[in-house]
Design a binder for these strands. Structure first.
Lengths: 258, 258
DNA sequence: TAGTGGTCTAGACCACTAT
DNA sequence: TAGTGGTCTAGACCACTAA
């Protein structure tokens, strides 16, 4: 193509200034949305190679630089991972580099945790009202409820309760959770086609209740971190609510402000 | 310039492959370092307009695109702020958008805090051993110690202790802190030429001690968030240690994982 | 109107990876 | 050697701001 810069290719252009809400957006944003759509639709699975920048530029009929800028942002949002000389890959939770993105509890001293995961309970139930609101589903809808304890170096440290939409995680059982080795988000991604993209956490200090007392092996009224997490998949759709109680006598929640 | 792409301008080039440790770095990274240097040296003060991309490109004898990429990163790191049609400005803590970057405690419900800041104590002392280590100074060196309580909507909520290098913050007094309106980091930046760039926080759950009990008006053994912050200025130099106790009965620490 | 940052293109070369 | 992402350039036009 010689020169046709004002034409917006592929995507329906807002040709002139009329209609309700112009909704302009840069070309690279439109390309980014298209690629995100393909990721969401599963055209390329987590861990797989996506087409090269040159190929994508040809497919969308834009320059390589425009595709590059789109992928730049996807890479910054951890949706894809670039590897020089190899290509661009769909991000996956089955990677070392992705492991600690959602687990912020670090040992005060020493090395990586020798982690152990104990499933206490898994059941299907109706969504509690507050969980339903957070998951954006109806209270009558089914959810999978999971309770587990994570130990580091033999010491029970995290007591967690999770609620997952029953519709998406149909067939998730305690057996499956127990036999699966590796991060839980890896399981969700591989077995249920649901990839956690981002999450928000609300953190408080609370007292251990009598249940936590037993499972974490601490005395009543031990101060614990309460961490309520809502995780989102593509399209900012909430797909997990998690309530954790963290024992912070030998660990701390690490955060970077930048 | 017609065509001289292999020449690295301005900065001493690694002309061929010899010498110890080649230390290659992309041109835009070198430009970024130069601009950061000017920021650190105070060539442009916080809030001020920096030269346009075209000007900087001419100064450094590179293309505008290269300067742009350098500024892209500085903008992503919150060192500068771009404003279309106006120019690029040195970031400052005297902005609404920057206020909540370091204060993560949010009210559970309702609107922005009616904040009140009560200075309890300001004194000059020798650095405690652990603080000295975090600030990368000698234990014999002087630090400014500040103790204060922040209240939201009339309720005492944060009890904080701060340690600042005495060398940098010479002349910081209780009076100055009390009479200054606005964020403390704004004061540091304007009066002491030290701008906080990023920080790390370690968060734990602890019991209120008897001092916190009085100042936060809570009973002994109330669970509190312990937040230890180390703040850094240009060149990753630590310039503040802060230990806060957050009351989280009506507030929570908000965090985004992405 | 002039100047700024924002977008888009086209083409060149480099660094890295695999075959 | 071929293909990938990474860097750099030069030039065009757009959107926004202010005089």
């Amino acid at each position: 193509m010689s020169n046709s810069p004002t034409i917006i290719p592929v995507i329906a252009p807002p040709p002139a200034g009329f209609g309700a809400a112009p909704t302009f957006s840069p070309l690279y944003q439109q390309i980014k949305a298209l690629i995100t759509g393909s990721l969401q639709a599963g055209e390329w699975k987590p861990g797989e190679l996506i087409p090269s920048e040159v190929e994508l530029a040809a497919r969308f009929k834009v320059s390589q630089g425009t595709v590059r800028k789109a992928i730049d942002e996807l890479s910054a949002e951890n949706l894809v991972v670039r590897r020089q000389g190899k290509g661009t890959f769909v991000a996956t939770h089955h990677e070392v580099r992705a492991q600690f993105r959602f687990l912020r509890l670090m040992p005060d001293a020493g090395e990586a945790h020798q982690a152990d995961n104990q499933i206490i309970e898994v059941k299907r139930q109706r969504a509690p009202a507050d969980v339903a609101r957070l998951l954006d589903i109806k209270p009558a809808d089914a959810v999978i409820f999971i309770k587990r304890v994570q130990s580091f170096d033999g010491a029970p440290t995290i007591l967690e309760e999770l609620w997952l939409p029953g519709l998406i995680f149909r067939g998730l059982t305690a057996e499956r959770l127990v036999e699966y080795k590796g991060p839980m988000y890896g399981l969700f991604e591989t077995e249920f086609g649901t990839r956690m993209i981002r999450a928000t956490e609300k953190i408080r200090a609370v007292h251990a209740d009598h249940i936590a007392t037993g499972l974490l092996n601490v005395s009543v009224d031990t101060p614990l971190l309460s961490v309520e997490r809502v995780s989102f998949t593509y399209g900012d759709k909430p797909v997990e609510v998690r309530r954790g109680l963290y024992l912070t006598d030998r660990h701390h929640y690490q955060n970077e402000l930048s």
